[in-house]
């Protein structure tokens, strides 16, 4: 290995002033005798100084609107989950094991006022993103079915919402696996998760708003939108998921 190459391996630590005195002297002896390496070392130190001088500004990016609110909602959600975990026994029992999330009381007005102004396509895109994210990152808790009545009780106790959640239906190959709070929309919309023919299916419930029925494909997912008694429902599934017709009919008939 040439001397230049060997010294080159120490240049990062040299610029960072992390070399032992003996190593440092060796590098300096070489740099004094080698203009090419001296130049490399000078450039490296220069870049280091520039970056460190600018680092407070470089680390201070303006956050996009909504990101802080969403992250704060995540923090609150976690804190609430911890409370549920450490709370008294009756409270732990009350919150079903599958629903490890959601112990906050929220008004939905902020998100819904945005949601109702949005076009169906925007609403569908937002909920599709949430559908993918929830299943991908938090995933269904496990393979077992959840109890619809427990979920309804949670939605009422935590949000004051009376929502009839369609339970599992063997005839339609619908399995209710749980519910959680949306990551999007500032975490203000309940998200009920199902498996239908092995596919992830989401049912979002937007109380206090009515939209015209729609059926559209956004971001590779089909969103079926319908309303009943002042509540909008959106069912999201992969666009090419086959055999969904009877499951869709079942959920649309049962959700209220």
């Amino acid at each position: 290995m040439s001397e230049c190459r060997r010294i080159g391996e120490s240049l990062a630590a040299y610029a960072d002033d992390l070399l032992k005195p003996a190593e440092r002297s060796e590098v300096e002896r070489h740099l004094a005798a080698c203009p090419a390496c001296r130049k490399l070392a000078g450039n490296e130190q220069g870049a280091r100084r520039l970056l460190r001088q600018a680092s407070p500004e470089l680390l201070n990016e303006t956050l996009p609107p909504g990101l802080r609110a969403r992250c704060e909602a995540l923090a609150r959600e976690r804190s609430a989950t911890q409370l549920a975990r450490f709370g008294p026994w009756w409270r732990v029992r009350l919150v079903p094991v599958l629903l490890t999330v959601v112990v906050m009381i929220f008004g939905a007005s902020a998100f819904l006022s945005i949601a109702t102004r949005r076009s169906d396509a925007l609403l569908a895109a937002q909920l599709t993103a949430d559908h993918s994210k929830c299943f991908k990152f938090l995933g269904p808790p496990d393979g077992t079915s959840a109890d619809a009545r427990n979920i309804e009780r949670m939605l009422f106790e935590q949000y004051g919402w009376r929502v009839h959640v369609p339970s599992s239906s063997a005839d339609d190959d619908v399995q209710l696996i749980g519910a959680r709070r949306c990551l999007y929309g500032d975490g203000l919309v309940p998200h009920v998760m199902y498996r239908v023919h092995g596919q992830d299916v989401s049912l979002f419930v937007l109380p206090g708003t009515e939209r015209k029925a729609d059926d559209l494909v956004t971001l590779g997912h089909r969103s079926q939108i319908w309303s009943r008694d002042g509540t909008t429902f959106v069912m999201v599934s992969a666009a090419d998921a086959g055999g969904m017709a009877s499951a869709s009919r079942y959920v649309m008939r049962e959700a209220r």
Partner: peptide
């Protein structure tokens, strides 16, 4: 020893302090 609820809020608040720098890193 499991973290207690009181710590949960503090942990969340501490994490949120780094939001800007995390976003700056994510941008790069």
């Amino acid at each position: 020893r499991r973290r207690q609820p009181a710590d949960a809020d503090a942990f969340g608040a501490e994490v949120l302090r780094y939001l800007e720098s995390l976003y700056a890193t994510a941008m790069r």
